[in-house]
Design a protein around this nucleic acid. Structure first.
Length: 352
DNA sequence: ATGGGTCCT
DNA sequence: AGGACCC
């Protein structure tokens, strides 16, 4: 929509293979949901505009532009995927609180009732700090809109877990603050344990085997029950998360730890096809590697397979070190191939 | 499902 | 090298 503003008012879907992986809010009002099949989407909404989103280059570039923009405010910016960033603005809050011109006005939504009496219920100054947090968020969001044309949601809270959860309560393009009195309300509004960031598919299943499905069950279960299944550290973390407590700091993300390129290898008939496809992936990777400027230490080939019954993909990989002289020499692709295929590190693939 | 990423064991 | 998590 940024590159073609005419699409703003139209139902727009981003297509990868047979799937609408995401869509704009015009499309959502027409009943399109994320991860629906193209056929279903077109049935519901024949005039949907589809844009191919298999090449993530543009998203990745915009994503880093946004992160770099945020880094002008504070060095404490942590990326989560391509479209989320955590900011620790504690220092900015302190500075603003020392400025006599700072007001007490809350910007955006207040989670829960937001009654007047809330303001009296803390003696630690957290309400004042969070209130300034809402002003910082509003400033940053409006600058983002002005300078990069990007709209977004924000959640203001005193830890990452809660900021992420509260950010989702007013969508799209709105912000919400959580004052501490409403923490349990927010956590219990989630119902399923799976809704807690950090509790994924696998952990949710293991919890279910213990009879734990809801957040309140997790809050109330005896620690020792969890320790038996998950060990001490995970049990502790999960208990805390269920109560809205998250000790993890905002860690500055910095440069990427790895770069990768993928393809689903549909309609691959023989080894030649596979080689050609992998060759294409290598071309893209080597181009990005040049832009990055750093040299790789390890190259890895990964397969995603659907495990039987479930639709969840397992990853199988083979890796080896990249000889450091290789990239100075020129014939990158040959050497990259050598790395992929060397040392008997091959991968069995079943062709369909 | 798709095309990315992270960190821990 | 695999497993878990995230988007």
């Amino acid at each position: 929509m940024l590159r073609n503003p005419e699409l703003r008012t139209k139902p727009l879907g981003i297509q990868q293979k047979n799937i609408v992986v995401t869509c704009n809010y015009v499309a959502r009002e027409r009943g399109i949901s994320k991860l629906s099949y193209i056929k279903d989407a077109e049935k519901k909404c024949p005039d949907i505009v589809l844009v191919n989103g298999e090449d993530l280059t543009h998203y990745r570039e915009m994503s880093y532009k946004i992160t770099n923009f945020l880094l002008k405010y504070t060095p404490k910016v942590e990326r989560l995927g391509f479209d989320e960033n955590f900011l620790d603005v504690s220092d900015m809050v302190r500075t603003r609180l020392n400025d006599p011109s700072t007001k007490e006005e809350v910007k955006g939504h207040i989670y829960g009732q937001g009654q007047k009496d809330d303001a009296d219920s803390c003696t630690c100054g957290c309400h004042a700090r969070l209130t300034v947090g809402t002003q910082i968020a509003a400033d940053i969001r409006s600058a983002l809109q002005e300078e990069l044309g990007i709209s977004c949601c924000a959640g203001i809270a005193w830890n990452k877990l809660l900021s992420k959860l509260v950010a989702g309560t007013h969508k799209p393009n709105q912000q919400t603050v959580l004052f501490p009195e409403h923490t349990f309300e927010l956590m219990l509004s989630l119902e399923a344990v799976r809704a807690i960031p950090g509790i994924g598919h696998s952990t949710a299943k293991r919890l279910a085997s213990l009879g734990i499905q809801t957040i309140s069950q997790l809050q109330e279960v005896d620690q020792s029950v969890l320790t038996g299944e998950f060990g001490n550290s995970m049990a502790q973390t999960m208990k805390l998360l269920s109560c809205g407590s998250d000790q993890s700091p905002v860690v500055t993300t910095g440069q990427a730890q790895s770069i990768s390129d993928e393809d689903s290898f549909r309609k691959c008939q023989d080894v030649e096809d596979v080689k050609n496809r992998i060759g294409g992936l290598l071309d893209n990777l080597l181009k990005r590697l040049e832009e990055d400027g750093r040299l790789p230490g390890i190259i890895r080939l990964t397969l995603r397979k659907l495990d039987k019954e479930g639709q969840w993909s397992k990853r199988e990989s083979r890796q080896c070190r990249v000889p450091s002289h290789v990239f100075a020499l020129g014939n990158n692709k040959t050497i990259a191939w050598y790395c992929v295929l060397s040392n008997n590190k091959t991968i069995q693939m079943k062709m369909k």
